[in-house]
Design a binder for these strands. Structure first.
Length: 754
DNA sequence: ACAAACTTGCTTTTT
DNA sequence: GCAAGTTTGT
């Protein structure tokens, strides 16, 4: 009983209610920083301790491995020895394990492969060929993403074809999809989306199996529910059908993955689907200062379609949100890094407290350069993931082939690394022969090997050199398969590395061999964790791990580095100091999301997610000019989001740029102000000089014609930034001194402001 | 098997 | 306008 008291202690009334509500459907709307994970873990512990629910019958699903691990750790501390019996995992890993066990029902044997992105693309290319479509007209990426979208709404190729009627591209995709299904089946493989789709299908077709899982899991919880897609929702519904002990936690305002088929309607319509669902709103924020929270609230309130719920905090007011602008991305980066250095020097922040967030990965380059220049250590989230590195992928490809020889995609990757005299043409011939006879490529190779061992003529006409290469290769793989059945995983890896020539190949490559070999050894270290399992299960688990990890997963705390991260990846994280860079129209909101209101609202949520990551300080930065892909990029207007944040919570920051950038003339006395610019944009004319507003064409005696990019009201004057034509670039000018004259619209110098 | 020349397209990327 | 991918040539 004391333990139970502990579980409720320190919770606010809403949190407590959420923990104590154990039966029936429950929807928890959890605002940012509202102690969501705490509530989930305490609720699980409470179920076990107070209600005597067996931990064995509790299933908790998350989206990231990181979230799953965090939850498991916390539960270990809360529920102690019980924790091990809980099922906590991502949707995908749960399904992957389930299919290992039950896959037979739908024609998947235990050792099935999980196709990664590359496998999928090359498979799609192959299918396009089979269906006789030109990959130029139908880019494999686009076809794959259409198929993926269909899978995420639980459509097989037939259903997709039915829906596609009249839409030519979709029809084509549905036809390719049919070939793709067949290819996956031949390879004894599934792709990411299949993990969910095929599980749902299995449950539909075999109610007995579903029954078993329904009986086992009497309590189901789903985290980040706003990001579930139709397949995930359906799966959850199936599992909780009988008992309806279905608890979902999420925040529609943080739904930022609709482009990955997440369907926010799952959470918005939850009450319709479960009329007797209890709804609890966690509104108290424990993370951010009041100023930061209110600024974020102000922004998100501009979204039309919203489930209203009250956010508040007892935290201190804190400092206003600081806003600053720069000439271009380099100056912006210089200012950010300069300010971070100041924060560590003059205040008590550490580098590890600071994060810089951006909309697109390309923005990291300027930040990295500024870090290098100013000697600030950084960690870049994203980049090539560990398991995506070439050397690791080559190694895992071998392991996958050893685990499942039906997997032609993997075979194709492995066969010429290192080169062993089996070129594209031999493989092509071999592949055709194999498909013609309805066997896998490896089986075909095996037959050829057998024939040559028995001194029989090769069943296919191949160069004799190729035939002997094939025999050697088959030999190698079969030896490895034998080892995989009796030895531990690391032993298999060691033999593989030396016997396949992969070790030599990596160590003698010209691209940083030491580093690459180190990665291989790191991988070997990871593999050690799976040594204990009886062969070949250890191999299976290792492969599952390699297919299902993300970039944020292995993000470790680094005290002495700042973090560079996209806004998407930042979801779920928090930092004392946050900079959001690139607050410009066309970037945030991104130009590709401006054509629909829904998409623009998602951009707003993305910005909201970023802002609510900040605990103490929040900076919003923008640049006038940004070099997109080398292109001039054109002058960019301030993001509408800046205007939507309540004015009184913002303050111009006037950060100094340590990185020298000579375009700007020395700034007299004062802060530049985005707010003022916005006011000016709204045609509030400055009190002196010609009335200028953003977008006006002007003429300068020395610089020629240009366009007003911004007006900033300083203490005593108005400072305008003008983008001049003819390679002159942007200048900041004081209106009272500068010989500027306003041109009428007909004299527009044609710079084309937005 | 690699390099040079060309084409293309250009958000985000939990698993 | 560039980087990445594809095609073509040696």
């Amino acid at each position: 009983m004391t333990q139970v008291a502990n579980l409720l202690e320190g919770l606010n009334p809403a949190q407590r209610e959420a923990v104590e509500t154990v039966d029936g459907p429950l929807l928890i709307i959890a605002g940012p920083g509202s102690g969501k994970t705490r509530v989930i873990t305490h609720r699980i512990a409470y179920l076990v301790q107070e209600y005597g629910v067996s931990p064995y019958s509790i299933l908790a699903m998350t989206f990231t491995n990181k979230a799953a691990r965090e939850m498991t750790d916390r539960l270990g501390r809360l529920a102690g020895p019980h924790a091990g019996a809980l099922t906590v995992g991502t949707f995908h890993s749960f399904c992957a394990r389930l299919l290992r066990i039950e896959g037979d029902f739908i024609g998947l044997s235990r050792n099935y492969s999980i196709f990664d992105d590359d496998d999928q693309i090359s498979a799609i290319k192959q299918c396009l060929g089979q269906a006789d479509y030109d990959p130029k007209r139908y880019p494999p990426r686009a076809v794959l993403s259409a198929i993926s979208r269909a899978k995420n709404v639980l459509q097989d190729s037939q259903a997709m074809a039915r829906d596609a009627a009249g839409y030519y591209f979709e029809e084509v995709c549905a036809r390719v999809y049919r070939h793709y299904e067949e290819l996956l089946a031949r390879n004894n493989a599934v792709d990411f989306d299949d993990l969910l789709l095929r599980t749902v299908q299995l449950f539909r077709e075999y109610p007995v199996v579903l029954q078993r899982y329904q009986d086992r899991y009497g309590y189901l919880m789903v985290d980040e529910f706003q990001d579930t897609n139709v397949a995930q929702y359906q799966l959850s519904r199936q599992l909780s059908q009988g008992h309806q002990n279905f608890c979902v936690v999420g925040d529609p305002d943080q739904s930022i993955y609709s482009w990955r088929s997440a369907d926010v309607r799952n959470i918005l319509n939850f009450k319709n689907d479960y009329p007797r669902a209890k709804v609890i709103s966690l509104g108290q924020n424990y993370r951010s200062t009041a100023n930061i929270l209110n600024a974020a609230k102000g922004l998100i309130e501009s979204n039309g379609k919203r489930l209203d719920h009250q956010l508040f905090t007892d935290n201190s007011t804190g400092q206003p949100v600081r806003v600053d602008e720069a000439y271009d991305e380099d100056e912006e980066a210089g200012k950010v890094i300069g300010e971070i250095k100041r924060l560590t020097r003059e205040e008590s922040f550490k580098l590890g407290d600071c994060a810089v967030m951006y909309r697109v990965n390309a923005q990291s380059r300027a930040m990295e350069e500024a870090c290098l220049q100013q000697g600030v250590k950084y960690r870049l989230v994203g980049g090539t993931r560990f398991y995506q590195r070439k050397e690791i992928r080559d190694l895992t490809a071998y392991l996958r082939l050893v685990y499942n020889q039906q997997d032609d995609q993997t075979l194709a990757r492995v066969v010429s690394v290192p080169p062993r005299g089996l070129g594209a043409k031999s493989m092509q011939q071999l592949g055709e022969w194999a498909t013609g006879r309805g066997v896998s490529t490896f089986d075909a190779m095996r037959e050829i090997t057998l024939a040559s061992r028995n001194k029989q003529p090769s069943p296919v006409s191949l160069p004799s050199r190729a035939a002997s290469s094939i025999a050697k290769f088959v030999d190698l793989i079969e030896r490895l398969v034998a080892i995989s059945r009796e030895a531990e995983v690391v032993k298999l890896i060691d033999v593989l590395l030396s016997e396949s020539g992969l070790q030599k190949h990596i160590q003698e490559s010209d691209e940083r061999p030491e580093e690459r070999w180190e990665n291989v050894m790191d991988f070997r270290g990871i593999a050690q964790e799976f040594n204990a399992e009886t062969p070949p299960d250890g191999l299976g688990s290792l492969l599952e791990r390699t297919s299902l990890v993300s970039q944020v997963d292995d993000l470790e705390d680094a005290e002495d580095s700042i973090t560079l991260i996209t806004l998407h990846q930042a979801k779920g994280l928090e930092f004392p100091v946050v900079f959001i860079v690139g607050m410009e129209e066309g970037l945030l909101p991104h130009s590709r999301s401006l054509d629909s209101e829904e998409q623009t609202e998602e951009e707003r949520r993305l910005c909201y997610v970023g802002m609510t990551r900040a605990e103490q300080r929040l900076y919003l930065m923008r640049a006038f000019r940004r070099n997109f892909r080398g292109g001039s990029g054109g002058p960019a207007a301030a993001s509408r989001f800046l205007r939507e944040i309540p004015e009184d919570l913002l303050v111009p920051a006037a950060l100094s740029s340590t990185a020298a950038r000579t375009v700007t003339s020395p700034q007299p006395g004062g802060g530049s102000s985005i707010r003022a610019a916005a006011l000016a944009a709204a045609s509030v004319a400055p009190s002196s000089g010609p009335a200028l507003k953003v977008g006006d064409p002007v003429r300068h005696r020395a610089f020629g014609d240009g366009i007003v990019m911004a007006c900033e009201v300083t203490a005593s004057d108005v400072e305008v930034t003008v983008e001049f034509a003819g390679g002159v670039g942007a200048k900041r000018l004081l209106l009272s001194f500068a010989p500027l004259e306003k041109l009428s619209d007909s004299e527009d110098p044609g710079l084309g402001g937005r």
